Simulated assay, not measured.
Amino acid sequence: MEKIRVIVVDDEQLVRAALVKMVNSRTDMEVVGEAANGPQAVRCAQTQRSDVVLMDVRMPGGDGITATAQLRALARPPQILVLTTFDVDDYVFAALEAGAAGFLLKDTDPDRLFHAIRAVAAGEGMLAPTVTRRLIERTRERAVASKSKVAVARLELLTAREAEVLDAVARGMSNDGVAQLLFLSEATVKTHVSRILAKLELDNRVQAALLFRDAHH
């Protein structure tokens, strides 16, 4: 059986040596290269065919995020398994967005590391549980932010007066309530509400209120 070819990238020599020793202790995998920073990792992968790169992300002389993106752009890109001591910071998401297939903490036990190497080599993803939860949260946050952006853009179609009317409608006011609040006739409020719905291409005032809420999340 062909061994999984691994490149180990870490600026700390002791950490790198420990990882190399661990990987080489398995009969189904072997270390084919080592690097102390991102640019070295890319050069190594260009000369050594590899299946998996164990990548540190915070390294002087070239971080692992840029290197991950460059490695994934190669003609025969290796899978990137990011190892770090930090589980909930922007490096996590930057690495995954750059194309990393997996993410593990450096204090992960050896068996889990071996399982992760095999998993990403087979084309599967591998995320530490804490990272998975945080990633879901971040994705949700981004979805809300994106929804909010779209809503804000749509509301820019409204005049200042229409925006005031919608604000009141979104607070659950009736046409009569809006009329009293803004010193308008009820008929004028109805006209404003109709125009708002037409401009925003909505069916009813509940949809308008939801859109307003999204914009002001």
Rank of each mutant, 00 (worst) to 15 (best):
M1K: 07
R5Q: 12
I7F: 05
V9L: 02
E12Q: 13
A18M: 11
L19F: 13
K21N: 14
K21G: 14
V23R: 00
T27S: 14
V31W: 03
V31G: 03
V32E: 04
A35D: 01
N37G: 02
T47D: 10
R49I: 04
R49V: 10
V52A: 06
M55S: 11
R58C: 13
M59R: 08
G62Y: 03
I65C: 09
A67G: 06
T68C: 13
Q70H: 06
R72V: 14
R72H: 14
R72M: 15
L74E: 06
P77M: 04
P78E: 03
Q79G: 12
I80P: 12
L81Q: 08
V82S: 08
L83S: 05
L83P: 08
T84M: 08
T85W: 02
V88F: 00
D89I: 09
V92P: 03
V92S: 06
F93A: 10
F93M: 11
A94K: 14
A95C: 08
G99C: 07
G99A: 10
F103P: 13
K106W: 02
T108P: 00
D109P: 15
P110S: 12
R112H: 15
F114A: 13
R118H: 09
A121F: 04
A122R: 03
G123Y: 01
G123M: 03
G125H: 12
M126S: 15
L127H: 12
L127V: 10
P129M: 02
T130Y: 04
T130Q: 14
T130F: 02
R133W: 00
R134C: 07
L135W: 11
I136D: 08
I136W: 00
R138C: 00
T139A: 15
T139Y: 14
R142N: 13
R142E: 14
A143Q: 15
V144Q: 13
A145G: 10
S146N: 14
K147H: 10
S148C: 11
K149Y: 14
A151M: 10
R154G: 01
L157E: 13
E162M: 07
V165R: 04
A168H: 08
V169G: 04
V169T: 12
R171V: 10
S174Y: 10
S174E: 08
N175R: 11
N175L: 11
D176E: 13
G177V: 03
V178D: 12
L181D: 11
L184F: 09
T188N: 05
H192N: 06
R195S: 11
I196Y: 05
L197T: 01
A198M: 05
A198I: 00
L200P: 09
D203I: 09
D203H: 12
A209Q: 07
R213Y: 06
D214Y: 12
A215L: 00
H216L: 01
